[in-house]
């Protein structure tokens, strides 16, 4: 481990870390923005859910590298080329969780809400979505952590955040171990930090949920 290299390259490492955060969080935000309405529509019209699930599953099955390469021809050498595939992966994870979350609303609760005079929109916003939060957040955790790990592949295009430490500063510099190790440690630390933050947000949003083991 060459600590001198690490201390000498702190600005670079910081910049790559920032890029990594950006590249993994932006797709989650986009994925959430698309999967929320999509999941809600799918739970209202179950006939749609099958086809949507099929499409997102197929997307999820496409190897990420292939998708990067394919998009390279469309969007060019740009961060968009990394963000789009990751957003699609996030979407395919989150749609399921949004639908499961809507389905987790007990029938009695929905019946009581309608019976007390909640219209459809009010019921969605004030009753169903809040109750769906734990499952939506669970999906967000999975998507965020997997994004943090997958961003590195973008390094092959030159947009990989900490992944650059594996390619440009690692493999291409004769397998420079210090850079590779730094990248691995920081990626893992970032994933753990992101997970902790999301769990914290979830607890703030759901003071009403029983706190079981393993949470």
């Amino acid at each position: 481990m060459n600590w001198e290299w690490v201390t000498g390259h702190l600005p670079l490492i910081g910049q790559l870390l920032g890029e990594h955060v950006f590249l993994s969080v932006l797709p989650v935000v986009i994925g959430l923005a698309v999967s929320l309405p999509l999941g809600i529509v799918c739970s209202r019209y179950p006939a749609l859910y099958g086809p949507v699930l099929l499409l997102t599953s197929v997307l999820y099955a496409v190897p990420s590298l292939a998708l990067f390469v394919f998009l390279l021809g469309v969007t060019g050498l740009h961060t968009t080329t990394v963000v789009i595939p990751l957003a699609l992966y996030t979407l395919s994870v989150l749609v399921r969780n949004v639908v499961d979350g809507m389905r987790s609303v007990p029938d009695a609760v929905r019946d009581a809400a309608v019976g007390m005079g909640f219209g459809p929109l009010r019921r969605l916003v004030q009753v169903e979505l809040p109750i769906a939060v734990p499952l939506i957040m669970a999906g967000t955790r999975v998507a965020t952590v997997s994004n943090i790990s997958m961003v590195s592949i973008g390094a092959l295009l030159g947009f990989g955040g900490l992944g650059q430490l594996f390619t440009t500063y690692g493999i291409q510099l004769n397998f420079f171990l210090t850079a590779i190790l730094t990248g691995v440690v920081l990626t893992v630390a970032l994933a753990v930090a992101a997970d902790t933050i999301i769990v914290g947000i979830q607890r703030l949003l759901t003071p009403w949920a029983p706190r079981g083991a393993g949470r």
Partner: peptide, 16 residues
Amino acid sequence: RRDMGYVIQQAGLFPH
């Protein structure tokens, strides 16, 4: 419905 109190078997309380 807001003029009619509604009580059901499973209570249907809002968990949140």
